[in-house]
């Protein structure tokens, strides 16, 4: 493995510093307490600082002698489609009901792949929605209405 300046290392380290720092800063808003009775903020502050410190170490290592990793392309289309699908499901499963929410979720998910043709997408949507309905609603008695109140049921 060749070692030199590494963008992925710096990025990963940066993420750790960011999240660790954010949690550490956030925990200052909670009581820190005493060693006898640690407050809710003490442990997250400690761990947040550890995460940030480890992140910093990764950044430094990445600048000096990082792992050479091929970062590769980012499938923006898939990222957008899957994010949209899951958020849609969370937002609408109550209101639209199980069947419409599932169907749209699958349809949005299929958009993630460039290789799924429209006809295929519709077939996958119908099949998976039916399968999910049979398994979860009929089989496992999940208490979500098939068609939700937003659709006038």
């Amino acid at each position: 493995m060749k070692r030199s300046r590494s963008f992925p290392d710096v990025l990963a380290g940066g993420i750790f510093v960011l999240i660790g720092g954010a949690f550490a800063a956030g925990s200052l808003g909670y009581e820190l307490g005493t060693p006898l009775r640690m407050g809710p903020g003490a442990f997250p502050l400690l761990v947040g600082l550890i995460v940030a410190a480890l992140g910093l170490a990764i950044v430094i290592k990445g600048l000096v002698a990082g792992e050479l990793i091929e970062f590769g392309p980012i499938p923006w289309r898939a990222v957008a489609a899957i994010t949209a699908a899951l958020v849609f499901f969370g937002l609408t499963v109550r209101g639209l009901g199980f069947v419409p929410a599932s169907a749209v979720t699958v349809l949005l998910t299929t958009l993630a792949s460039t290789r799924v043709r429209p006809l295929m997408a519709v077939a996958v949507t119908a099949g998976l929605t039916a399968a999910a309905t049979v398994i979860f609603v009929v089989g496992l008695r999940l208490r979500i209405p098939l068609i939700g109140p937003w659709l006038g049921m």
Partner: peptide
């Protein structure tokens, strides 16, 4: 086929965690 599998994973995962 993967084009069927990955929507299935996403849908079932959403329903499973929600339930």
């Amino acid at each position: 086929p993967y084009q069927v599998l990955f929507p299935m994973i996403i849908l079932f995962a959403a329903i499973g965690t929600y339930s």
